[in-house]
C-alpha cells in the first residue's frame, strides 16, 4: 500500500512537471499523427508486394511499437537534469521505496504512451484500418510493456552515465539496429534471407510481429507467443536494472 502511494506521489510530480512544459506533450502527440499521415500514403501502393491486405493494419502496429520504444528511450534525459539538481538524491534520502521512485517515473512514461497509442489507433481506424477490438487491446498492452521496459532501461542508463553527452550516442547506437532490424516500417520478409536470419535475433522484431498478429486477429501464432515472452522478459529485466541503479547510485 505504501508502495503504491509512494509511486503515485512520484508519478503525480512527474506529470505535473510535464504539463508545465506543454511543448513536449504536443510533440509527443504530433509524432504518431505525422507518421500515419505522411508515411501511410507511401506504403499504400506497396501493400500488395508485402502480401498484406490493409496498409494501416500493417503500419499502425509497427508505429505503436516504435512509439513505445523510442519515446521511452529518451525518458532518461529528463532524469539526468533531475539528478544534477539534486532531486534524485533528495528522494533517495526519504524512506520511500527505491522501486517506487522508478515506478512512479515509468508510470508517467507509460501513461503518456497510452494516450499516444489511443490517438494513433483512433486515427488508424479513421483512415481505414480494420482490427478486432480484443486484438487492439492486447496489442496496446504489449506496447505499454515494451515502453515500460525501454523507459526503465533509459532511466537506468541515465543514472549510470549521468551525462547527456555519453547517453545520446549510446542511445543512437542502440536505436539504429533496432529500427532497421525490427521491420517497423517495412516487413523483414521482403528482405534477403541473411537479413531475415539476423533479424531473428532482434527481440523487438518478434514484438512487432506479435502486435501485428493481434491486429489481424491471429491469436494462436508463434510470433505472438515469442513477442509476449520477449516483452515480459525485457520489462522484468529493465525494472530489475533500474531498481538496482536507484538503490546504488553513488555520486
Amino acid at each position: 500500500m505504501t508502495f503504491v502511494r509512494e509511486s503515485f506521489i512520484v508519478f503525480r510530480r512527474q506529470v505535473r512537471m510535464n504539463l508545465r512544459n506543454p511543448a513536449w506533450v504536443l510533440i509527443g502527440v504530433m509524432q504518431p499523427v505525422l507518421y500515419l499521415v505522411l508515411f501511410g500514403p507511401l506504403l499504400k501502393p506497396l501493400v500488395d508486394d508485402f502480401g498484406v491486405e490493409n496498409p494501416y493494419t500493417f503500419l499502425v502496429p509497427g508505429l505503436l511499437v516504435q512509439l513505445g520504444m523510442f519515446g521511452a528511450f529518451f525518458a532518461g534525459f529528463g532524469l539526468i537534469g533531475e539528478w544534477r539538481e539534486g532531486v534524485v538524491e533528495a528522494e533517495r534520502v526519504t524512506p520511500a521505496s527505491r522501486t517506487a521512485l522508478l515506478v512512479g517515473r515509468l508510470s508517467r512514461d507509460v501513461a503518456q504512451l497510452f494516450v499516444q497509442a489511443l490517438i494513433l489507433v483512433g486515427l488508424g481506424f479513421a483512415m481505414g484500418m480494420r482490427a478486432p477490438a480484443g486484438g487492439v487491446v492486447i496489442g496496446v498492452l504489449l506496447t505499454l510493456l515494451v515502453g515500460g521496459a525501454c523507459a526503465a532501461a533509459s532511466n537506468a542508463l541515465a543514472l549510470t552515465t549521468k551525462s547527456e553527452d555519453v547517453m545520446a550516442p549510446v542511445i543512437n547506437m542502440v536505436m539504429m539496429p533496432v529500427l532497421l532490424l525490427s521491420g517497423i516500417l517495412l516487413p523483414m520478409t521482403i528482405g534477403p534471407d541473411w537479413l531475415q536470419r539476423v533479424s531473428d535475433f532482434m527481440p523487438f522484431r518478434w514484438i512487432v510481429d506479435a502486435v501485428r498478429d493481434t491486429f489481424t486477429g491471429d491469436f494462436g501464432t508463434s510470433q505472438l507467443m515469442w513477442g509476449t515472452t520477449w516483452a515480459v522478459a525485457l520489462f522484468g529485466l529493465a525494472l530489475w536494472w533500474g531498481t538496482a541503479v536507484f538503490r546504488k547510485e553513488n555520486a
Binding site: R12, R20, V87, E89, A90
Partner: peptide, 27 residues
C-alpha cells in the same frame, strides 16, 4: 533531514509543490 550541496528542488517546479511532495514521501 539532509540538505545536499545540489539542493533538491527542480528549477522549474513550484516551490510549494516540491515541499509537499517531499513531505509526503516521508509519510
Amino acid at each position: 533531514g539532509y540538505v545536499s550541496q545540489a539542493g533538491g528542488v527542480s528549477s522549474y517546479a513550484r516551490a510549494g509543490d516540491e515541499v509537499v511532495d517531499h513531505g509526503m514521501l516521508y509519510g
